[in-house]
Computed example of a mutant assay.
Amino acid sequence: MRMLLFVAAAMLALAGCQSTKLDADLQKSLPAICGAATQAHDLYVLALAADRVSEKTQRRADAAWASLHPVCADPDKQTTSSILTAAFAAYLTISAAAH
């Protein structure tokens, strides 16, 4: 029983280390994520101006940008979950629009 508690405590400690590394890695890659998202949004605006975007895709793209833009505007105050959620939503929207 004592060994089981020791293993559980070690696993929790290790998980905490990995979470900290994930946070740091996400913070480091956030400028690249935001740069790519900004370029994609600029292309989207051009397609929108050329009337090449359906209304449904427009709503989705606007929602994805609305969730990602604040993350990119203030990256120091973001959590791992907010970065992942916003980036994943933007990725799904871009993927859906591309197909």
Rank of each mutant, 00 (worst) to 15 (best):
R2M: 15
R2A: 15
M3G: 09
F6T: 14
A8G: 11
A9V: 05
A9N: 09
A10L: 15
M11K: 14
M11E: 14
A15P: 05
C17D: 10
C17P: 07
Q18C: 13
Q18N: 13
S19I: 14
S19E: 11
S19R: 13
T20V: 11
T20C: 06
K21L: 14
L22V: 07
L22E: 06
L22K: 07
D23F: 04
D23L: 09
A24Q: 11
A24S: 14
Q27G: 09
L30D: 07
P31I: 12
C34W: 01
A37Y: 02
T38I: 06
A40K: 01
L43C: 05
L43G: 03
L43Y: 00
Y44F: 09
Y44E: 00
V45Y: 02
A47S: 05
A47V: 04
A47P: 02
L48E: 07
L48N: 07
S54T: 09
S54L: 07
E55N: 08
E55Y: 08
K56Q: 06
A61Q: 00
A61G: 00
A64Y: 01
W65C: 00
S67E: 04
L68F: 05
P70T: 03
C72T: 02
A73S: 15
A73M: 15
D74F: 11
P75Y: 00
P75F: 03
K77P: 05
K77Y: 10
Q78C: 11
T80H: 03
T80K: 03
S81I: 03
I83T: 01
L84R: 10
T85G: 01
F88R: 00
Y91F: 12
L92Y: 05
L92D: 06
T93C: 02
T93L: 01
A96Y: 13
A97G: 12
A97L: 14
A97I: 11
A98N: 14
A98P: 04
H99L: 10
